[in-house]
Design a binder for these strands. Structure first.
Length: 759
RNA sequence: GCGCCCGUAGCUCAGCUGGAUAGAGCAUCGGACUUCGAAUCCGCAGGUCGCAGGUUCGAAUCCUGCCGGGCGCGCCA
């Protein structure tokens, strides 16, 4: 899979420097110098083309002997110029000297086969610290994305059951990717596509309905679940429960929740799920009796969505929009067929030549399903995904059905209409985070984008030309294999046997800190790149919750914050005004201090790179490494070079460094949706961890520092609000149900149980 | 059978898109708190980067072929 890059990066200027009065970070300074140096080299005939500042490769060498920063630029240039990299480096260095009148680079040397190693002048890297403090909470943001409008669709789990751990991984990746790209200057919207139409919703409704009819057995079933017993109910399922129904205990709980609704309860009188006429007679809102449109089906997925939204908000995830598939089908709009954008889109594709009707060739077309319109054309409509003019990477191996021979559109048709809708909203890039088990769908979808672009061009859309499969990126999130004590836990919504995301969050939450579960889960998923399969052992996760790397970073922040606080207590606190406007940092003479300053100044680069490569995990690793560098600096100089001393100038200088580090760590944690605690409870003494002073943990103070993140809302309020809005959205889309009597309960972390308990 | 993803320390994973001597965390072992946080630090040990070729100044990274593991290939969603 080749991830697509942003088409253009127009901003070649110094992106991190919004006003001239703000000093640039060392990386930007050096980049600008090298860019000028290549211009000079061109004038002198050394090079034929210059290099833009943002094109200058810079790295922080692992070995201190290789300088503060190093570049392999000359290798790149030598390839084009067919010159010796080392000789080129020698000549470029002379140009760098001329391009650096301020002497930001104290020393530069050519090393190895052509590396240029740089040693920065103190005023250069010190300016980086001031730069951090001046930008404060906005440090790290850039215009790297040049305001491109991006839509990120993620999770989009079918509303037939609670989220499991694999969904959680995709959710965390998508949410954090959105945050990282926003910080890097993209205009990002996020969306969850609710697949609330079709056979699966039919099955969901049927499953719930069976439990509705078996009221006498629900209580026993739920008691089994509440006791955390295996989900297989001792007395089996209700009579007639379908083999391919959803067998999870949450189905019984959902039935319990719906039982009080008179419009739902009267459904229990019917004796057959397939009695279409009977269902139609019962529900004036669903005159066709269509199974996925019955009140019990609709209400069931609404409850599922509410629960999904609650589980997501518990780990700090909200969406800008919940897009209902029903809406695309026009099922909310009453009888007016013109609202059926799915069928409409299929017709447009036919007109543009991208879809065609064709009778079933080998006679395996199914009979029209019960309840569908009896007079269907016997021809299915196929999307021409194999056309030769589709670039090979986006070409499907087979034309796929979008309208069945009985006239019903497929899931694929709805998804096409959905993506056509995305195009009409003016996004320049679409990103769909998908589970890796759907990777076969990717070329098909990219082919669709190609076809839609062409179709829109035919229809006269002036923006259509720009569209092709390249503008759709599909980061694949690999599977999470759930283990318990090293043994795989079977997962499947149909079997009902799975561990939910909410369960895992609960398991890794530590006493006294309600955020810790979300923090730990988020960081765990961010601690590995998306395209590697991972094992998630519940026992290990529980045992290791305190060893989770997230605590390492959070502890780093708490430690930094506590140094600043201690200095204030002693009346030696950092003079913020002075630090920002007239800082004297000459007392920072240790190698570690210079290295930390350069490390911290690199943060905006890390964010921009993570956004560009769609890999939020890079930010997590950067934070871990930055904190490691600070911990080492702090520990090693504990005895000889304390931050706070009687030397006022030195104290102020080191506090400036500490404040800058704290700022970067805080910004990074917030960006990842993780709380940045000012204090953490001391775990050392098991006895004192109860309710004395040590117990006021991160949670209280963390809220102050994370005002912009989803994490600032407590799990409770977040659950309520998001669940409500999701449920509202869902309810809006279900206009033909008895909405007037619908009461979607506020979701709790485990809503069905809670609701049952309340009954 | 065809296609996609992944094989890096005993385990879990990074490796900045082709750069200098492949790095962390767990786990083992040995050290460091009277002070601004020991949820920390310092050290020891641990590797044919799945295997074999190829591309070039240079490959864990790119190309080919094998070997292992995972996942896809419906008028399901």
């Amino acid at each position: 899979m080749t991830p697509c890059r942003p088409m253009s990066d127009n901003s070649t200027a110094c992106i991190m420097n919004p006003s001239a009065t703000v000093p640039a970070g060392p990386v930007d300074t050096v980049r600008a110098i090298f860019a000028r140096a290549t211009q000079i080299a061109v004038e002198q005939g050394v090079l034929t083309t210059s290099v833009a500042a943002r094109e200058v490769p810079l790295e922080r060498p692992k070995d201190a002997k290789h300088g503060d920063l190093a570049t392999n630029l000359c290798f790149v240039l030598a390839k084009a110029a067919k010159a010796n990299p080392r000789a080129l480096a020698e000549r470029l260095c002379a140009c760098v000297r001329q391009a650096d009148p301020d002497g930001a680079i104290a020393k530069l040397e050519v090393a190895g086969p052509g590396f240029v190693n740089l040693f920065l002048a103190p005023h250069c890297w010190q300016a980086g610290l001031v730069n951090i403090l001046q930008h404060a909470d906005t440090f790290g943001q850039s215009r790297s994305g040049a305001g491109q409008r991006v839509l990120i669709e993620f999770v989009s789990a079918n509303p037939t059951g609670p989220l499991h751990v694999g969904h959680g991984r995709g959710a965390v990746l998508g949410d954090t990717l959105a945050a990282v790209m926003r910080a890097a200057g993209f205009a990002v919207s996020t969306e969850y596509y609710i697949n609330n139409v079709g056979n699966q919703i039919n099955k969901l409704g049927e499953s719930v309905w069976h439990w509705l009819r078996a009221a006498d057995r629900r209580a026993a079933a739920l008691a089994v679940w509440a006791a955390d017993q295996p989900v297989a109910f001792p007395d089996g399922f209700p009579n007639g429960f379908p083999d391919d129904g959803y067998r999870g205990a949450y189905i019984a709980a959902t039935a319990q929740q719906l039982a009080d609704d008179p419009a739902i309860a009267r459904c229990a009188a019917l004796t057959s799920w397939t009695d279409t006429a009977g269902w139609a007679a019962l529900d004036r809102h669903n005159p066709t009796g269509r199974a996925d449109n019955r009140a019990v089906s609709v209400r069931a997925w609404q409850l599922m969505i509410a629960r999904i939204a609650a589980d997501l908000s518990q780990i700090g995830i909200r969406f800008d929009k919940w897009q209902s598939e029903r809406t695309l089908h026009g099922l909310d709009g009453g009888l007016d067929d013109s609202h059926d954008r799915v069928s409409l889109c299929a017709q447009r594709l036919v007109q543009a030549g991208w879809a065609y009707p064709q009778p079933a060739t080998d006679g395996d077309a199914p009979a029209p399903a019960a309840g569908s319109s009896e007079v269907g054309p016997s021809q299915a409509v196929f999307f021409a995904g194999t056309r030769e003019d589709i670039p090979k990477a986006f070409r499907d191996s087979k034309d796929r059905v979008i309208v069945r021979s009985d006239g019903r559109p497929t899931y694929f048709a709805a998804d096409i209409a959905y993506h056509d809708d995305k195009l009409s909203r003016g996004f320049t890039h679409l990103i769909n985070v998908l589970g890796a088990d759907h990777h076969g769908y990717v070329p098909r979808l990219k082919g669709v984008l190609h076809a839609l672009g062409d179709m829109r061009r035919c229809e006269g859309d002036p923006n259509a030309q720009a569209w092709s499969g390249e503008r759709l990126e599909v980061p694949l999130v690999q599977m999470v294999a759930l283990l318990r004590d090293g043994k795989p836990v079977p997962m499947g919504k149909r079997s009902g046997e799975f561990v939910t995301l909410a369960d895992v969050v609960e398991e890794v939450t530590t006493v006294g800190n309600p955020h810790s579960g979300a923090d730990a889960v988020r960081f765990t998923f961010l601690s590995r790149k998306a395209d590697a399969q991972i094992d998630f052992d519940l026992e290990v996760a529980r045992r290791a919750s305190l060893d989770n790397p997230v605590y390492y970073v959070q502890y780093g922040h708490a430690r930094l914050a506590s140094v600043l606080a201690r200095a204030r207590e002693l009346g030696k606190g950092l003079d913020a005004q002075k630090a920002v406007h007239s800082a004297d940092l000459t007392a920072l003479t240790l190698d570690a201090e210079r290295e930390l300053a350069i490390f911290a100044a690199d943060y905006p680069e890390v964010v921009a790179r993570a956004a560009r490569s769609r890999e939020p995990h890079q930010v997590a690793y950067y934070l871990r490494d930055l904190c490691a560098a600070f911990h080492a600096y702090y520990s090693q100089n504990k005895a000889t070079a304390r931050v706070i001393s009687d030397d006022v100038a030195c104290t102020q200088a080191r506090l400036t460094l500490v404040a800058a580090l704290a700022q970067v760590v805080r910004n990074g944690l917030i960006l990842l949706g993780i709380t940045a605690p000012e204090r953490m409870a001391n775990l050392a003494g098991p006895s004192e961890a109860d309710d004395d002073g040590a117990a006021d943990t991160t949670a209280d103070t963390a809220a102050d520092t994370t005002a912009d993140t989803a994490a600032d809302t407590t799990a409770d309020t977040a659950a309520d609000t998001t669940a409500d809005t999701a449920a509202d959205t869902a309810a809006d889309t279900a206009a033909d149900t008895a909405a007037d009597t619908a009461v979607v309960p506020a979701a709790n972390s485990r809503p069905p149980i809670a609701a049952v308990a309340a009954c």
